[in-house]
Computed example of a mutant assay.
Amino acid sequence: MSERISVVIYYDGKVRYTKNGVIFLSENTPRLVFNQNIDLTELCKRIRRKIFGTTPMKVLSIKYQFCASVDPVTSDSFDIKCAHGLEAMVQTHLASGAPYLELYVQFVSLNDTFATAIREEYTTPA
């Protein structure tokens, strides 16, 4: 049986870099639980649905925060861009024994993406 992973999702906020590392800030922090063997496409879909329901949004980026050093406590982050990054995040999280992991997610509206693509298509010189 696959181990379940609890996640706190930060979005629509800020990513701050301090002397003790990275801090995710957000007014809303929904929670999500998923199996450790989830694929990146499914994770993006579940995050999007959790936050926006049926609103046409797309996950633009996912950043994972992890403890880089215990003495003093320092955190770092990395972008999850592919299956290997997702696997590394899951393994790092499971090895840490932390009760949950923290993700900062950026979204883009599918309508904005389509409008930008159309604009670029018709304004680019031939």
Rank of each mutant, 00 (worst) to 15 (best):
22 V>R: 06
73 V>D: 05
4 R>M: 12
98 A>T: 11
112 D>K: 10
32 L>R: 02
113 T>A: 13
47 I>Q: 01
121 E>R: 14
49 R>D: 10
123 T>F: 06
26 S>Y: 03
113 T>F: 07
103 L>N: 00
16 R>Y: 11
18 T>L: 15
4 R>L: 12
28 N>G: 05
14 K>T: 13
17 Y>E: 15
77 S>E: 15
2 S>A: 13
65 Q>T: 05
116 T>H: 09
65 Q>K: 15
113 T>G: 07
122 Y>C: 08
35 N>R: 12
57 M>L: 06
11 Y>G: 04
2 S>H: 11
107 F>G: 03
67 C>E: 13
36 Q>Y: 08
39 D>F: 06
72 P>Y: 04
10 Y>C: 04
114 F>S: 10
21 G>M: 08
24 F>Y: 03
9 I>L: 15
28 N>P: 02
1 M>Q: 11
1 M>Y: 08
84 H>D: 11
113 T>D: 13
101 L>C: 13
14 K>L: 13
85 G>Q: 00
64 Y>A: 09
78 F>Y: 05
95 A>W: 01
9 I>P: 04
44 C>Q: 14
44 C>E: 14
90 V>T: 05
94 L>K: 05
81 K>M: 09
5 I>V: 10
60 L>S: 14
95 A>D: 04
1 M>L: 10
83 A>W: 05
118 I>K: 00
19 K>M: 12
118 I>L: 02
62 I>W: 01
105 V>A: 01
83 A>S: 14
54 T>E: 15
47 I>M: 04
43 L>E: 01
75 S>R: 15
125 P>N: 04
58 K>P: 01
62 I>K: 00
29 T>R: 10
55 T>H: 12
2 S>C: 09
115 A>F: 05
75 S>I: 08
65 Q>R: 15
46 R>T: 00
43 L>P: 01
38 I>D: 08
29 T>I: 05
72 P>I: 04
14 K>P: 05
61 S>T: 07
121 E>P: 03
104 Y>G: 00
22 V>E: 06
96 S>G: 00
83 A>Q: 12
105 V>T: 04
99 P>K: 13
65 Q>P: 03
52 F>Q: 04
71 D>S: 11
83 A>K: 12
36 Q>N: 13
14 K>S: 14
